[in-house]
C-alpha cells in the first residue's frame, strides 16, 4: 500500500504547488501508516528530484523519457496510473493546476477510482473516506465520501502547508511502459509570459474593475503588483471589453483563486466575482462607493477614489520593498 503523488514540474523545476502536494501526500501517508511515493515525470535532474524527500516523500520515482519533456495528458496519466498500480496505491494526489486537472480524471478512470477535485481538507478516515471540497466556486463547501478502493484527490493550491525536514529518499528511475499510441496530442508551441507570476500560483493578487475607467489606467494596478511581487487580475467586464486578457478574469466564470492577499480596486463585488476570490486569506477593497458590496467581504477597506488613493499605496509599498531589499 502507498500514497502516490504527482510531482509536477515545468522546465525541470518543481513549483510551490508541487511541494504542497508532496507534503499533503506525506501527511496522508503518515495518518494511514503507509509510504508516500512521489512520481516525477519529464527529465528532472536527480539532484532536483531528491528535494522531494525534504517535503515528505519516502521514495521518489523518476520517469525519464525525451518524449515526456513536454506535458502530454494521456501519456502522463498512463505513466502515473502504471506506477500507482505497481505501488498498490490507495490514494493518488495531484495539485489542481491545469496539468493536474488534465490527468487526474484520466488516472481515476484507469484505476476505477472515485475522484474529488478542489480538495481543501485532509481525508477523515474515521468512518469511510470523507473529504472536503469547495463547491459553487467557493460560495460553499461539500463533504464527500469516496466509496471506491482507490481514490484520486486534486488538492487546491495555496491551501496546505509545507514543512521542510532533512529526510532523504532513494530515487528510482523507471521506464513508464509507454508506446507511440500514448502520444496522440502534439504540442506545437508554448507561450508563457516571462517574468510574470501566474495568477493561479500567486500569493498576492492585485485586481482592477470597471472603476478604473480604461486600460490606460492599469499602471495603477501593475505598479502596486510589481512593488508587492503580485500577479494582476480583473473583473469579467474588464476582460469582456478587452481592457485586459481573458486569462486575468477571476470569478465564478473565470479563474477561482485563493491567494494570501487579494486587493480589489474599483470592483463592485458582485456575487459572481466574489465567488472566485472569497477564499483569499485577506481581502482589501478600494471603492469610491461606501455601499459597494465588496466591503462586506473584505478585511480592510478604503472608501475613496482609486486615482487618489492608489498612488499613496504604491508609494508606501515601494518604500516597504526598498527596506526589505
Amino acid at each position: 500500500m502507498s500514497i502516490i503523488v504527482f510531482a509536477e514540474s515545468t522546465d525541470g523545476n518543481f513549483k510551490k504547488s508541487t511541494l504542497e502536494a508532496v507534503a499533503y501526500a506525506a501527511e496522508v501517508a503518515k495518518n494511514t501508516s503507509t509510504n508516500c511515493v512521489a512520481v516525477s515525470i519529464g527529465n528532472v535532474d536527480d539532484s532536483k528530484a531528491s528535494e522531494l524527500a525534504k517535503f515528505g516523500a519516502d521514495k521518489i520515482v523518476s520517469i525519464k523519457n525525451d518524449k515526456l519533456i513536454g506535458f502530454v495528458a494521456e501519456a502522463y496519466a498512463k505513466a502515473l496510473a502504471n506506477i500507482a498500480s505497481q505501488e498498490n496505491a490507495t490514494v493518488i494526489v495531484v495539485s489542481n493546476t491545469y496539468s493536474g486537472k488534465a490527468i487526474a480524471p484520466r488516472v481515476a478512470a484507469k484505476l476505477k477510482a472515485g475522484i474529488v477535485s478542489g480538495v481543501i481538507s485532509y481525508p477523515d478516515t474515521s468512518n469511510g473516506f470523507k473529504i472536503r471540497k469547495t463547491v459553487f466556486s467557493g460560495k460553499a463547501f461539500a463533504d464527500v465520501n469516496i466509496t471506491t478502493a482507490a481514490k484520486v484527490l486534486a488538492i487546491t493550491p495555496n491551501t496546505f502547508n509545507t514543512i521542510e525536514n532533512n529526510k532523504t529518499a532513494n530515487i528510482i528511475s523507471v521506464d513508464a511502459g509507454l508506446t507511440d499510441s500514448d502520444f496522440i496530442t502534439h504540442s506545437v508551441e508554448i507561450s508563457r509570459a516571462s517574468g510574470k507570476i501566474p495568477l493561479t500560483e500567486a500569493e498576492i493578487v492585485v485586481s482592477g474593475g470597471r472603476g478604473l475607467k480604461g486600460p490606460e489606467n492599469w499602471g495603477l494596478i501593475e505598479n502596486l503588483a510589481e512593488a508587492l511581487g503580485a500577479a494582476t487580475a480583473c473583473s469579467k467586464p474588464v476582460s469582456d471589453m478587452h481592457w485586459r486578457p481573458h486569462s486575468e478574469h477571476v470569478g465564478q466564470t473565470g479563474i477561482t483563486i485563493k491567494p494570501n492577499l487579494y486587493i480589489a480596486v474599483g470592483i463592485s463585488g458582485a456575487i459572481q466575482h466574489l465567488a472566485g476570490v472569497s477564499s483569499s486569506k485577506v481581502i482589501v477593497a478600494i471603492n469610491k462607493d461606501p455601499e459597494a458590496p465588496f466591503f462586506k467581504a473584505a478585511d480592510y477597506g478604503i472608501v475613496g477614489d482609486a486615482f487618489e488613493v492608489m498612488p499613496k499605496i504604491i508609494e508606501a509599498a515601494k518604500k516597504l520593498k526598498a527596506q526589505h531589499a
Binding site: V116, R132, K139, T147, K296, A297
Partner: peptide, 24 residues
C-alpha cells in the same frame, strides 16, 4: 463512486477595518 454527505458555508468575515482615504 462518491456521495456528498453534507454542505457547509465558509465562516463569515469579521468586520471590515476601514482606512481613511487621506491616509491610504
Amino acid at each position: 463512486t462518491s456521495a456528498t454527505i453534507s454542505f457547509d458555508m465558509p465562516p463569515a468575515k469579521g468586520l471590515c477595518k476601514m482606512i481613511a482615504p487621506e491616509n491610504a
